[in-house]
């Protein structure tokens, strides 16, 4: 799972987009998913997510994400069909409207989760930070905070896995098949994770200070992030996606 957030190099059309356009594209797909109330359109958006993965050369990651979301989607689907009472009864207490609503909720979850992860997988975090500073005029401190938070996600996941491994070796039953028991046992582990995270953040802050963090400004980056025709095309796609969601 942690590999999903790791950068995948490439020369695809998505890689050629400006980092901000990629994020805009992801946000537009999410927005379209929540604006649209049409089941077919939502299915289309999910296909568009997969197409994005294919165009970016990370189709495997897109499929892994979809697979990862499947469990929680099934859980949500069952919850929805059991609790929605409106509509005509189809089977037992399940209604037709319950089925449609459940499908929409699950589709929205999948559509919203996939594009942002995919775009982050094809964007160097430093590029995203620099583009935010240069193009969007975000102060470097804030851009650095956001990008550092993203950068640390896989490291924290790795750290948690290592902590769980160490506790298993001590006899804590993390190798149990009871999921609820496992979740209960994870709570005390927040302490070492928090301590390690604070120590890591402190070390990162000291290293940044030592390398002249305070001196950085909008003109510090040597790499430029101009917009090309493909960015314009992507913005049009974004507009079309949202317009389609409103109209259909």
């Amino acid at each position: 799972m942690k590999d999903l957030f790791q950068y995948t190099a490439g020369d695809s059309v998505i890689h050629k987009l400006n980092p901000l356009t990629r994020i805009l594209l992801a946000v537009a797909v999410c927005a379209a998913a929540f604006v649209s109330d049409n089941l077919y359109y939502l299915v289309g958006l999910l296909c568009f997510d997969m197409l994005l993965g294919l165009l970016a050369g990370v189709f495997g990651k897109a499929l892994s994400l979809l697979k990862g979301l499947l469990k929680i989607s099934i859980f949500l689907f069952i919850l929805q069909i059991l609790f929605v009472r409106k509509g005509n009864r189809v089977f037992w207490i399940i209604t037709d409207q319950g089925l449609i609503l459940a499908a929409k909720v699950v589709l929205r979850l999948m559509i919203a989760c996939i594009p942002l992860a995919l775009m982050l997988a094809v964007t160097q975090i430093s590029d995203l930070a620099n583009a935010l500073v240069q193009v969007a005029h975000v102060p470097y401190k804030y851009a650095f905070t956001v990008t550092t938070a993203i950068r640390f996600i896989p490291q924290f996941m790795e750290e948690m896995a290592d902590i769980m491994e160490a506790q298993t070796a001590r006899g804590v039953e993390f190798d149990t098949k009871n999921g609820l028991k496992k979740i209960g046992m994870m709570l005390p582990l927040c302490v070492p994770l928090l301590v390690t995270s604070v120590r890591r953040t402190d070390a990162a802050a000291a290293a940044a200070e030592a390398r002249g963090f305070e001196l950085r400004n909008r003109t510090s980056g040597y790499k430029k992030y101009p917009f090309h025709w493909c960015d314009l095309l992507a913005v049009l796609v974004c507009a079309a996606l949202i317009a389609g969601a409103v109209i259909i």
């Binding site: 750290e159 290592d162 902590i163 001590r170 302490v191 070492p192 301590v195």
Partner: peptide
């Protein structure tokens, strides 16, 4: 099992 990094074992 004694790990290289004690902070992974300590949780209390």
């Amino acid at each position: 099992y004694l790990f290289q990094n004690p902070d992974r074992q300590i949780c209390k």
